[in-house]
Computed example of a mutant assay.
Amino acid sequence: MGNRFDLRAPSLLLTLLLSLLYSFQAFADRPKGHYPFSISASRIGTAEADVGGGPQSLQRESWLFDAKANYSVNRQWSLGVNLGYADLDYDWGNRGSTLFDGNLSSWQKVQRYSAGLSVSYRPDKHWMFLLAPKLQYASADTAPVSDAASYGVVASAMYRFDNGNLLGVGVAYLNDISEVRTVPYLAVNWRINESWRLGNPFSAGFTGPAGLELSYRLNPSIDFGLGSSKRTQRFLVEDDDVTVEIDEWVSFLRVGWKLNRSLSFNAYAGYYFNGELELSEAPMDSGERTEEIDNQTALALAVEYKF
């Protein structure tokens, strides 16, 4: 069975995390040019894609919002807080039909709430260790959000070379809705030369590993990126642990514009491929069934403000 939490629990955690964020802002002694707080918003839209070979089709649009704070306790220890909200719209091309041979009706909206803490430790100038517990609620408009809890932890170890490049490994242990999974990933921030860099475009967690992106810096304000990663969205669609998971790969081209030290924009042209829609039911039912999602293009715009 899935995880059952009283909805008051995440509310208390969110209150605590917000209190910590305000505490960081009040007491952090930030170095000149350092911005410990950031807020971001992203808009993602995909082209229409057939599901299960038709007649059903799907087009998705998403709004993502995040707030982060980081505070250096001393030279060795630092703390972080992050909050996230996602509003995911599902526009089905044939709303009168049902999915999985009539076993599930189409949903129209998914909402995802997330919160997390992070603790990093640097014992010397080379090594850095990170531990980040996470909590998430994700449910469709056909299921109660109070039953849609997931929790997990991300751990990583990175080595900083004398030239400043970082390389390491990480793993995310995720007790997701009705499923436990472990996601390994490569952690990298490698400056090849003054213009080229290899790094992680995403944060590892419930939505998948961190991915890889090769970027080119044209000038201090403009850069370009080419990357790819596996993306996962799992959410509750009915009571009794009936969940849907969308599992797919995405490749993208990115253009970034840094307007000033605080404000930046990124535009993406993406391509989703090898997508699957998986229905997982309670253990007493018939198990898991999948429908293929045709490949589709996507466009996205993200804005971030640091302060």
Rank of each mutant, 00 (worst) to 15 (best):
T142Q: 12
F161T: 10
G164S: 05
E179I: 08
N189R: 07
D239Y: 10
P123C: 09
N219L: 04
S195D: 12
Q233M: 14
M158K: 14
Y185L: 08
D176N: 11
D147V: 09
S114C: 10
R160Q: 14
I222K: 02
L218P: 04
N165C: 05
L174R: 03
G211P: 04
Y185T: 11
S150C: 11
P220I: 02
D240G: 11
G102L: 06
N163H: 05
D240M: 07
A172M: 01
R217A: 13
A138P: 08
A140C: 05
L104E: 13
N193I: 00
S215R: 02
D241T: 11
L226F: 13
L226R: 04
R217I: 01
N103S: 14
E213W: 00
P201Q: 03
D176V: 01
Y159P: 00
S114R: 13
A204R: 03
Y113H: 09
E194K: 12
G199W: 00
L218M: 10
G152V: 09
V154T: 15
S120P: 07
G152K: 08
A143T: 07
D241I: 09
D124R: 05
A148S: 15
V180A: 14
F161I: 00
A155W: 10
E213M: 02
N193R: 01
V119Y: 02
G152I: 07
K125D: 15
L174W: 09
V145E: 13
S203L: 11
Y216E: 02
A132T: 00
T207P: 05
F206D: 09
D241S: 15
M158D: 14
A172C: 09
P123E: 04
L131M: 14
P201W: 07
D240F: 09
D240L: 04
S156E: 12
W127R: 02
N193D: 13
D240A: 14
A140I: 04
V237E: 06
D141V: 09
Y159D: 06
A132V: 03
L104I: 06
Q233G: 10
R122P: 03
P133C: 07
D176A: 12
A210G: 10
S106Q: 15
D141R: 02
I192F: 01
P133R: 06
T182N: 08
Y159T: 04
E179Y: 01
Y159N: 03
I177C: 03
S106W: 07
W196E: 00
E213A: 02
A187Q: 12
D124V: 05
K134W: 04
T232H: 08
A204W: 02
V153D: 06
A143W: 07
G164K: 02
L130V: 15
Q136S: 13
D176I: 06
A148V: 02
E213C: 01
V153K: 09
N200F: 00
V145A: 14
T182R: 05
R112Y: 09
